[in-house]
C-alpha cells in the first residue's frame, strides 16, 4: 500500500534579481525583475508503507524542497500530492500526528534545558498517553544507550549525542513516516554508524517508513534498498541502490601525501583533482585502484593515503549523461 504518492509535483520560487550597485538598487525600487526557479519539477513518486528510501542529489538539487512539500511546510505550485491519505499543506493535526521530521541543521531540542524537558513538552504536544510515552522512551533510551545524558543541559552535548536525542524526540509518538534531512551531517564516523544502526532497527522493528536525504553515500548504501536521485528538481533515477552504485559509482577518490616534495606521475589512467608538491588527489577507476596503490607504494615514500567513495556530484553527472537511463 502506497503511503506517499506524488504526480507531476512542481515547486517554483520567485527570486528577486537585483542589479549591482546603488543605481541597480534604486531601479529595483520601482521596477523589479524576477527570476522563476523550479526547485522541484514534474516529480512523480510512490513510496510503500515500511520502505526505507534514500533521496540523493547535490546541493540545491531539490531534496529539501521535496521533503518540505511532503510534510506540508510549503505548498506545491502544481501537481498532485498525497501523504498518508492527506494533502500535506492543509496542515491538519490528524496528518501531523502521522509523521515526524528531523532536519540535521535545525534542532528541536531546547538547548538550555535537558533532553528530558523536551521529551515532556513533546508528550503534551502529541498528547501521548503516559504508559505509551514511558514504553517508547525506555525503548529508545535503551536502543541508543543515552541514559547518562538525559538530564544534562543539551548545549553541553556533542553533535552526535544531540542527534540521537533529536531522533528519540521525533519518534516518541510512533510516527508512520519519518523524514530525515541530512541527519548525519557533521557527525564523526562512529556517530554516523550508530545513527545508521538505530535507523535500521526502527525501520525493521517498528515498520516506520523512512525517507532519508544524505550527502553520505554510506548512509544510502547501508540503509536504503531503493534510492531516488534528484538533480535540478528532476528525478534522474528511481530504483535499486546496489544497481545505482554498481553502474554509476565507477571511481574511487584517492588522496596521497608524500614525505618529501614529489611530483606524482603514473602510467595508470587517472583523473587529477588537486595537485601540490606534497599532496595529490585523484579519481581512479575502481578496477584500477589496486594497481595504482601498488605503483604508489613501490615508487614513492608516502606519508599518508586515503581512499574514499567518490562524491555524489560525479555519480549524478554520470546518470545525467547516460541517455539510456536505468530507472526502474
Amino acid at each position: 500500500m502506497n503511503i506517499i504518492e506524488t504526480k507531476n509535483l512542481t515547486k517554483t520560487f520567485q527570486r528577486f534579481q537585483k542589479e549591482p550597485g546603488l543605481k541597480g538598487s534604486m531601479k529595483g525600487l520601482f521596477k523589479r525583475k524576477y527570476l522563476m526557479k523550479s526547485a522541484v519539477s514534474d516529480f512523480t513518486l510512490t513510496v510503500e508503507e515500511g520502505e526505507f528510501i534514500g533521496l540523493i542529489g547535490p546541493n540545491g538539487a531539490g531534496k529539501t524542497t521535496l521533503i518540505k512539500m511532503l510534510t506540508g511546510i510549503i505548498a506545491p505550485s502544481n501537481g498532485e500530492i498525497s501523504v498518508a491519505g492527506h494533502y500535506p499543506n492543509k496542515l491538519e493535526n490528524s496528518f501531523k500526528r502521522q509523521y515526524a521530521v528531523v532536519m540535521g541543521q535545525k534542532s528541536q531540542l531546547f538547548f538550555e534545558l535537558s533532553a528530558n524537558d523536551t521529551f515532556l513538552l513533546f508528550k503534551e504536544l502529541y498528547n501521548i498517553p503516559e504508559d505509551e510515552y514511558r514504553k517508547n522512551l525506555d525503548y529508545f533510551i535503551a536502543l541508543f544507550g543515552v541514559t547518562d545524558i538525559l538530564d544534562v543541559q543539551v548545549r553541553t552535548l556533542s553533535l552526535g549525542e544531540r542527534m540521537k536525542l533529536e531522533l528519540i524526540v521525533a519518534l516518541l509518538h510512533n510516527p508512520k513516516i519519518l523524514f530525515l534531512d541530512e541527519p548525519t551531517i557533521g557527525l564523526d564516523a562512529v556517530a554516523q554508524k550508530q545513527i545508521r544502526k538505530f535507523l535500521k532497527e526502527v525501520n525493521e522493528t517498528k515498520g516506520t517508513t523512512i525517507i532519508l536525504t544524505s550527502h553520505y553515500m554510506e548512509d544510502i548504501k547501508s540503509l536504503c534498498k531503493r534510492c531516488v536521485v534528484i538533480n535540478e528538481g528532476k528525478k534522474l533515477f528511481d530504483g535499486d541502490t546496489d544497481l545505482l552504485f554498481k553502474k554509476y559509482q565507477t571511481h574511487k577518490k584517492v588522496t596521497v601525501s608524500f614525505v618529501q616534495e614529489d611530483h606524482f606521475t603514473s602510467e595508470i589512467d587517472f583523473i587529477p583533482l588537486e595537485k601540490s608538491p606534497y599532496k595529490t588527489t585523484l579519481l581512479i577507476k575502481k578496477e584500477l585502484s589496486q594497481e595504482l596503490l601498488k605503483d604508489l607504494l613501490v615508487r614513492y615514500e608516502l606519508d599518508d593515503i586515503s581512499i574514499e567513495e567518490e562524491d555524489i556530484g560525479n555519480v549524478v553527472e554520470r546518470i545525467y549523461n547516460d541517455k539510456s537511463g536505468v530507472s526502474e
Binding site: 511546510i73 493535526n93 501531523k96 515526524a100 521530521v101 535545525k106 528541536q108 502529541y126
Partner: peptide, 12 residues
C-alpha cells in the same frame, strides 16, 4: 531563518 518549520509540523 526557517525555524517556523518545526512549529508548522507539530499537531498544535
Amino acid at each position: 531563518n526557517g525555524q517556523l518549520d518545526h512549529y508548522i509540523t507539530k499537531p498544535v
